[in-house]
Structures are given as C-alpha cells and as structure tokens.
C-alpha cells in the first residue's frame, strides 16, 4: 500500500517536472522568437506562469506530502551516499548543534571521490549550467554600453548567484544576495541614474580595452593558481581542524563569555569586535555618501 502511494507520488513529481520544463521551454521560445514586446509579454504571462506552476507542484509533491517525514528523510539521502567512507557522522570534531557543519560535511562527502559516478556527473551539471549563466550575465553587465541595461542584466546576475549559493548550502548568503542584490541595489542604482543623466549610445556593447583586459586576465590566472591549495569543503585536513582545541574552545566558551547563542555571531560581534567596528565605519561612510547623492540630510 505504502509502495503504491509512493510510486504515485514519484510519478507525480516526474510528470509535473516534465510539464513544467515543457511549458518553460515554450515560454523561452516565445520570449526569444516572437516579433514584438506585446506578444513576448503574453507568452511570458501565460506559458511561463503555467511552467512555474507545474514545477512548483512537483516540488510540493516531493517535499510537502508527509509533513515531518521530510525532515527525517533529508539526512537519509546523504547517509545512503556516505556509507562507503563512514560518512560525516564519524568525522572528528563535528560541531555541536551546528547545522551548517553537518551540511558541509554531507555536501563534502557528496562530492568526494567515493561517490557513485552518475551522481557526481549531475552535481557538476547543475554547477556548470549555473556557472555559465553567472559568467554570461557578469560579462554582459561589464560590457553593456547603456547603464540602464547594465542595471537590468545585473539583476539577472544576482538571480544566478542566489541559486549558486543555495546549491552550496549557504541559505543565509543566498537570502542576503536576494535581499541586497535584487531589491536594494537595483533601486539604489536606479535612484542614482534618476539623479544623473543617461547617455544614449549607438553601440550596444562597450569596446574592450585590450591592455586592461590582459592585466585583469593575468590577475585572474594568478588567483586561480592559488585555488589548488585551498582545502576541500569539510576536509579533515583543513586548517580549521588542525587545532581542534581552539575550535572547541570557541564552541564551548562563546556563550559563557559573550551570552550570544550563535557562535558565528559571537565571534563577529565580540571576539573580533574591532574588525566589525571598522566595517561599521565603512557602512557609515557609504550611508553618508548615499545621503549626499540623494541630496537629503536624513534617511526618512
């Protein structure tokens, strides 16, 4: 009986996802190929909404059926994969009550060498497509001649970054990216544009300064060369584990010393308070700059 229900549910997930993909594909074709903005807006409002609805129904069928069961099921997914090397549960110095550390551990073992081949290929697939999207939007933002077009494409860039952060299991960073980049930055840039002038341009793209591009390329290659020395996420050889006594001291003593429940917050606000104070000065300076741009004396 349970098996029958489960297979119906899996079938629903697959069917809804495929329908969502199909209608989103229809919408993409329409947005790309229809002749004018009105018909493009029509396909966006009809086909794309339908596609998103089906895809979200698939997500609902995948996570929203058993209520609490999903919470228990999530680690099981990783546990399944972690069997060969003992899994993150046996990792020394696992953080007490730190969800992030468990996440990082599970994620690290997902990308580990002991992983089954098909899964590794698909993880790379999501990453690769997101990377292409992010790099393309970043290039378009940098090269766009029209400032308003650059602002709009920069919004698309933040979409890709938020998805990438989510994929790397950093939901706090993804939320910040969503709130700051999509919301605040766009509005601030538009406000700045409204207070200044926008030139009309014939050419859609900026011409590239070759020496500058070459220098930037050298810098990029130099930075990428250092990547090989960075330990893998969750690696037991990472410097943070090389001195477990220090790590453990912060984990056990942070609350006693600072009365902040979140260890990361305690380190940020108390133990390295002077650094944070410096950052606060930078933010204050940025606020003053924004007031000057807006010709205001107070934020009201």
């Amino acid at each position: 009986m349970i098996d029958a229900v489960e297979s119906v549910r899996v079938g629903l997930v697959v069917a809804f996802t495929l329908l969502g993909l199909f209608f989103t594909f229809v919408s993409m074709t329409g947005v790309l190929r229809l002749p004018d903005v009105y018909s493009r807006a029509h396909t966006a409002s009809q086909a794309d909404t339908l596609g998103a609805g089906f895809a979200l129904a698939a997500v609902a069928a995948a996570v929203g059926w058993t209520g609490g069961g999903v919470q228990d099921g999530a680690p099981a997914v990783f546990h399944l994969r972690d069997e060969p090397d003992g899994g993150p549960r046996d990792r020394p110095g696992r953080l007490r009550g730190g969800d992030r550390a468990v996440d990082r551990g599970g994620r690290a073992s997902m990308t580990g060498a002991t992983l089954a081949a098909p899964v590794a290929a698909q993880v790379t697939l999501v990453e690769a497509s997101l990377f292409v999207f992010v790099v393309l939007t970043a290039l378009a933002t940098a090269l766009a001649r029209d400032v308003l077009a650059a602002v709009i494409v920069f919004g698309a860039y933040s979409l890709g970054m938020a998805a990438l952060y989510t994929f790397y299991r950093a939901p706090d960073v993804a939320l910040t990216e969503a709130a700051i980049s999509a919301g605040v930055t766009t509005v601030l840039l538009l406000l700045t544009l409204a207070k200044t002038t926008r030139m009309d341009h014939e050419a859609p793209f900026e011409s590239v300064n070759l020496p500058a591009a070459g220098a930037a390329g050298f810098l990029l290659v130099g930075l990428l060369l250092t990547m090989g020395d960075i330990p893998a996420v969750g690696s037991p050889d990472a410097p943070v584990w090389s001195n477990p006594a220090v790590t453990q001291w912060y984990l056990t003593e942070t609350y006693a010393q600072t009365h902040v429940e979140n260890t990361v917050m305690g380190v940020l606000a108390a133990f390295r308070g002077f650094d944070t104070f410096g950052e606060a000065v930078v933010v204050f300076a940025a606020g003053v700059g924004a007031l000057i741009v807006l010709h205001r004396e107070v934020f009201a």
Partner: peptide, 9 residues
Amino acid sequence: LLVAAAAFT
C-alpha cells in the same frame, strides 16, 4: 530533480 534544475538553468 538535480537534472531538472540544470535544465531550467
């Protein structure tokens, strides 16, 4: 679902 996410991207 991971493949579907890649396809949407």
